[in-house]
Amino acid sequence: MNDWFAARRQRMLRLKVRREGERPFAPRLSASEPVFEQCPRCHAAVTRTQWDKNRMVCPECGFHRPVGAYRRLSMVLDEGTFQELDPDLTGTDPLNFPGYGEKLAGLRRRTGLREAAVTARGRIGGMPVIAAVLDSRFMMGSMGVAVGEKIARAAEAAEKARMPLVIFCASGGARMQEGILSLMQMGKTAAAVTRFREKGGLYIAYLTHPTTGGVTASFAMLGDITLAEPEALIGFAGPRVIEQTIGQTLPEGFQRAEYLQEHGFVDAVVPRAEMRNTLAKLLRLHQKGGVRRDAE
């Protein structure tokens, strides 16, 4: 019976990944579609199958291409354990911002996502977790009311179920189109993860490209453990704003994951290939003297 549910969950996640319509994962629809996709950085010709097998990391230069939220979950969660939380939770248009409603509708069609955050319950290396993923393809992963609420609910779910919380961040910051209410989500999410942590919960923040603005200045920088994907841009102010303010060009590697590690803000830069094993190890290390915290 359990197997049946697991298989169903896995089918569900596979379907969601496919619906993300992500190249090169989407099946080739016709022979006219290209077999190769150039690496955006080193321009090596890489086949779609290679991208797929290599988790969207260039086999030539190690460049980490962005991955969609469901794809990320399918890479990190044990097979058959994915259970989405609040899949239909969305926001509205508090400022009646011109064009915002249409933009959301278009993105929902194109990406198969309802909002910029996906939250789920699952297992990594057999250990239960609550996971949240921000998806940079949906309005740059920006945080409006729905994203803030999903993150807060994920922290609350983790507290209630006594499970660790893992958040994969990727965000341009607060969502401009929802104005001040987006800013208030910083307070909401910071308070929610803080409450969870104060109750003894383990929160692992995994920062991916790009993590900036109001997300950096709230839950992204509040992890018990902070990991980052190689070369991910991580900062508060964007590089363009800083250049305009100080009137000079920024040094090579500024605000990259490695730079943050050097300056003491990231525990480890973890390549995507090691992501799953690193998370499993951290979860094992926090099992409190071998007593499973999830004993139900």
Binding site: M186, G187, A190, A217, M221, F236, I242, T245
Partner: peptide, 20 residues
């Protein structure tokens, strides 16, 4: 303040710590 040193010393982390 959006500056080079401000970023190097963790502007985001400092604000997050105040919120928390």
């Amino acid at each position: 303040y959006p500056g080079l040193e401000a970023e190097a010393r963790g502007q985001g982390a400092a604000i997050a710590a105040c919120l928390a």
